[in-house]
Design a binder for these strands. Sequence first.
DNA 1: TATTGTTATACTCTATAACTATA
DNA 2: TATAGTTATAGAGTATAACAATA
Lengths: 154, 154
Amino acid sequence: MHENPRPDRTATPIELIEQLARVAAAYYRHFAAAAAGHGLTLMQGKTLSLLTRPRSMRGLAGLLSCDASNVTGIVDRLEARDLVLREPDPSDRRVKNIALTEHGERTVRLIRADLMSGLTALEELTAEDRGALRSLLDRAFPETTSAAYRALPG
Amino acid sequence: MHENPRPDRTATPIELIEQLARVAAAYYRHFAAAAAGHGLTLMQGKTLSLLTRPRSMRGLAGLLSCDASNVTGIVDRLEARDLVLREPDPSDRRVKNIALTEHGERTVRLIRADLMSGLTALEELTAEDRGALRSLLDRAFPETTSAAYRALPG
DNA sequence: TATTGTTATACTCTATAACTATA
DNA sequence: TATAGTTATAGAGTATAACAATA
């Protein structure tokens, strides 16, 4: 028995960041494919997925990490396909609240189902492993908890 | 003591996928900021980071998950800034191998350092936690191991 | 015949700056 | 004065189709 057995796998911060890069790329590859299956781009699919409740244009810009001026075009294209609609905000007439239409709701469910069916390995994890993975991701990216996202204004 | 205490955190496959979406978005937000600090776009920074060894145009297209025709423009812009260069392949004159210049090597190191300094929570994990996270990510995305990436042709 | 890289094209995404209508 | 949404603009990323050079 050796004192310092060589581990099969390294896990330096650099190695972990490189794997996160590959996982993030793989996630978006799967997501973009699911969105494309419904004739939508990555950003359009992302926008639909973020509309779990109505959001203002600027709220969407924050969630999409892009300038508010971009959201106009993205929402224009989604609205032209009857996937979302702009509702005037009753308490501030400057604000428009973007909400999913029924067609949008249906589409986002289909995209999510396609995405999940593409991520079979993830679904095959045990509940315990999923909990451990989630907990570790929360600690590695503390700004990305679901509570933090839900609480965002707009 | 209850038989079925309500857990603080759920970890259904759907919840986990939603958190992965947030983590992937956060990763790219950090990466894009690090690349922008050196006047580079996300795709330009990604391309530099993938050039751990010379890659053909089509090899890069595969790693970037985009059509080969896009790589021409991306590499054009990097080459114009002396970050990469095109080398003819000695064994197949159709192929061009893209390699980092010295300036490219330096830039990619700086981007990586900036990225790491933006992901402080990740670096603060214990070695054990990093190993566990890496192992779980490997199992959740088995196509993204570093060995699989290194072995890709081109 | 098939493959590599490129070009042409049209569309989408992107930040910046300026504008309008509200607040 | 400040903010929300939009428009105009220029640049970058994107897929598709077609092309020349090479295999």
